[in-house]
Structure formats: structure tokens, C-alpha cells
Write a protein that binds this DNA or RNA. Structure first.
Length: 414
RNA sequence: CUGUUCGUAUGGCCAGCC
């Protein structure tokens, strides 16, 4: 049974869920009763992939076989709910856990805390922190790190600083994750000097930087179009004995593409391959975007085909990028064809997809076609692209009709 | 043997900066 658990866990880590299911079946057939840990592995794997319904099914299966869910089971499910923004569900699970006589531990609370943070529900965050204290589950370094990351994300640096003080006071870090979050906060607002100063602080405090630390900085410099600095940090990283990973390369690649340095981008790609860092869907999307923005839409389209050939499935972002590329190049029909293609490969379009196309049609003065898209997806993003399109071409009456329509469709203008 | 925190790609609008 141990062996199975290890195997299932391994399979779930590399998203090979089907094989994990097969193993579970095998266990049951061999009369080798799977325990909670085995089910938990599968549930956690599914939850991480956002397949919460499948995870719930495993829970059912578990109950049918009279295997009792534990705190870990619930925590994994909470994570799953949070990932799909189903916070009410997550809260319900927390209650259910308590009802069934289990006491949530700090990890369970942290999972919910993270969900609240991701949605920026700051009042609820502080409430939950209080609840933790009341329940005798003092927030730990994970809890504080979660909150710090959240505060940095929403630009509340003073508050993040306060948490930092509290952490020091409670001897709960700060650790490398705390620093990385703070650093990312500075990078996102282009305060690169402050971000770099944090790196010095870390080293001074004997808090060893990780690949994430360096990648955060490299990403910041790339975004700020400071490629020389990005390369400099990369050098420092090598000197510190840390190897770049796929994300690091993708950050740099994006910087190169956005700066129009396609030659260098291709060179970097070769380096990646040499270093056994196989390009992933993000790498390709970066390249597609780069090609599109430099007016090489047809090359981008070829790259998309190449992905399919190489078995690297383009995702929502790749397709959206491609559609925008065609629209901006004045080839809206080609863009629409990509929409059809994504449906063929069962990639579900989102609000970005539709608003991109609506914008494309409007800018091409093809209002009927734009309306047709709006008909498929009458959401806020689509409406605002449509309104923008109508207003910028002086069709104010039509715009007002749209506003009425929005109210009727239960999507009132804001 | 299993669960929690940090880094990468896409549209429009608005704000800010030059």
C-alpha cells in the first residue's frame, strides 16, 4: 500500500492522473485496501489541476468504501475550491470538517487564507487570522507570507511592512519567500533599485536567495526593458551557483521579444534546448506574441502549427494572442478562424477572446460582425469593447441602445 | 507515504509618467 501511495503521488505530481486512477483501481481489485493517504494523493493532484469535480468524486468513492476523510483531505479540497474561486464552497468545507469532529490545523487555515488573499478579501483575511488565534492556531510563517504577498500585490506596502515587523517580533521569519514577495512587489511597480537592495538585505541576513529570487529580479528588469541589467543578474545567479529554470528563461525571452530582439531570442532558445530546458506553452506564447507585435503574424501562425505538430498544445493565452495578432494586422477573418480552431481542439474561449475579436471588428468598421460576437458572449468585457467601438466611431445612439440591452440582459453598465 | 505561502505569456478601457 505504501508503494502504491508513492506511485500515485508521483503520477499526480506530473499530472498523469489517468494512470493514477488506474493504480487505484488495481489496488481495489487486488483487495489491497487504499487508506486515506492514497485517496488524498489523488484528491490533491486533481485539486491542483483545478479539477475539483473529479476530486469530489474521489471523495465520494472514498466514503463509499468507508474510508474516513481527514484534515488533509479537506485541506486539499479547500485548495481546489480556492483555485476555481469558489470561496463559499471552501468555507463550507471548513465548516464540514469541523462538524465531522476534525480540528483544522494551521495548514488548513492557511489554505483558506490563501484563497481569501487571492481574491483580495482583506477584511475576511484579518478575521480569519483572528479566528486562528482564538482556535489556538497561531499564524505561522506560511500564513504571514501569504498575507505579505497579497498586500504587495495590491500595493499596500506599509501594511506589508507591519506584517514584516510582526514576523520578526514573533520570530516567524522573514524567510526567503517573504523577501521574494516583497521583491516582486517592488518589481511590479518598477522600483528596481529597492528590489535589488532587498537582495543585499537577504544575503546580509544569511537568507539564501533561490532561483525564484533571481527570476523575480530578471523578470522585473525584462519588463522594464533593462535587458543589460537582466543579464547582469543572470550572471550573479550563476556566480551564486544557482541555475536558471524554464521560468527564468521565459522571463528573459519575453524581455527580448518585447524589445524586438528576435535574433537574440532565438539564440536564447538554443541555449535553453542545450541546457535541457525544453520550451513549454508559455515559451511558445511569448514567441507568438513577439512575432505578432513585430508585424510577423504569418510567422506566428506557422509557429502555432509547429506547436501542434510538436505536441505542445496551445492554450487559451496562445490562441488569444494569435487572434489579437490577426486583428491588429487587419486580418480579422483570420482571427475568427483561430476562434474556430480553438473550439476544434476544445479550448474554451474566454472574455479576452471575445473582446479582442469585437475590438477587431469595430476597428475594421464591421459593426454587424462585432454584434454577432456580442451575441455569443454578452458579458461585461464584450459590452465594453462594443461600446468603445461604437463611441469612437461616433455611433452614440447605438451605444445607448447597447446600454439598455445590457440592463435587460442582467449585465448593468457600471 | 499525502495537504498550505513567492517568480513567466494574451484584449479593451481608465489612471499615471515622459
Amino acid at each position: 500500500a505504501f508503494t502504491y501511495c508513492i506511485l500515485i503521488h508521483g503520477l499526480c505530481q506530473c499530472q498523469r492522473i489517468d494512470e493514477a486512477y488506474q493504480l487505484l483501481d488495481e489496488m481495489i481489485q487486488k483487495d489491497c485496501h487504499p487508506d486515506a493517504a492514497v485517496y488524498n494523493c489523488l484528491i490533491a493532484g486533481l485539486c491542483k489541476m483545478g479539477k475539483i469535480d473529479a476530486a469530489r468524486n474521489v471523495l465520494k468513492m472514498m466514503l463509499e468504501r468507508s474510508c474516513v476523510p481527514d484534515v488533509i483531505t479537506y485541506t486539499s479540497l479547500i485548495v481546489g475550491c480556492c483555485q476555481t474561486n469558489a470561496l463559499d464552497e471552501a468555507r463550507k468545507l471548513m465548516e464540514k470538517m469541523k462538524e465531522s469532529g476534525l480540528t483544522p490545523d494551521t495548514v488548513a487555515y492557511n489554505a483558506l487564507l490563501n484563497g481569501l488573499c487571492k481574491q483580495n478579501r482583506l477584511e475576511e483575511v484579518s478575521k480569519l487570522l483572528e479566528e486562528m488565534v482564538e482556535a489556538g492556531r497561531e499564524p505561522d510563517t506560511f500564513s504571514y507570507n501569504t498575507v505579505v504577498a497579497c498586500l504587495c500585490e495590491s500595493g499596500k506596502y506599509e501594511e506589508a511592512g507591519k506584517i514584516l515587523e510582526k514576523m520578526i517580533e514573533k520570530k516567524c521569519g522573514p524567510d526567503v519567500v517573504t523577501y521574494n514577495s516583497l521583491m516582486d512587489g517592488f518589481c511590479k511597480v518598477s522600483k528596481m533599485d529597492e528590489a535589488e537592495r532587498l537582495l543585499e538585505d537577504m544575503v546580509g541576513r544569511r537568507c539564501a536567495p533561490t532561483v525564484i529570487t533571481y527570476t523575480t529580479l530578471i523578470g522585473g528588469f525584462s519588463r522594464a526593458d533593462r535587458l543589460a541589467d537582466a543579464y547582469r543578474v543572470m550572471e550573479d545567479m550563476f556566480k551564486a551557483g544557482i541555475s536558471p529554470d524554464l521560468v527564468t528563461y521565459n522571463c528573459l525571452l519575453d524581455g527580448l521579444c518585447k524589445a524586438g530582439k528576435l535574433e537574440e531570442a532565438h539564440e536564447l532558445l538554443e541555449v535553453m534546448v542545450e541546457k535541457d530546458c525544453a520550451p513549454d506553452v508559455v515559451t511558445y506564447s511569448i514567441l507568438v506574441n513577439g512575432l505578432c507585435k513585430l508585424g510577423k503574424v504569418d510567422d506566428a501562425r506557422l509557429l502555432l502549427d509547429m506547436m501542434l505538430e510538436r505536441g505542445c498544445q496551445p492554450n487559451l493565452v496562445t490562441f488569444n494572442t494569435m487572434i489579437d495578432g490577426f486583428c491588429k494586422a487587419g486580418k480579422v477573418d483570420e482571427g475568427h478562424k483561430v476562434l474556430e480552431l480553438m473550439k476544434e481542439v476544445s479550448c474554451t474561449p474566454d472574455v479576452v477572446t471575445y473582446s479582442t475579436l469585437i475590438d477587431g471588428y469595430c476597428k475594421a468598421n464591421r459593426m454587424q460582425d462585432a454584434f454577432a460576437i456580442l451575441g455569443i458572449s454578452p458579458d461585461k468585457a464584450s459590452y465594453s469593447s462594443m461600446l468603445e467601438g461604437l463611441c469612437s466611431t461616433g455611433k452614440v445612439e447605438e451605444a445607448q441602445e447597447i446600454m439598455d440591452l445590457m440592463t435587460k440582459q442582467g449585465c448593468p453598465p457600471t
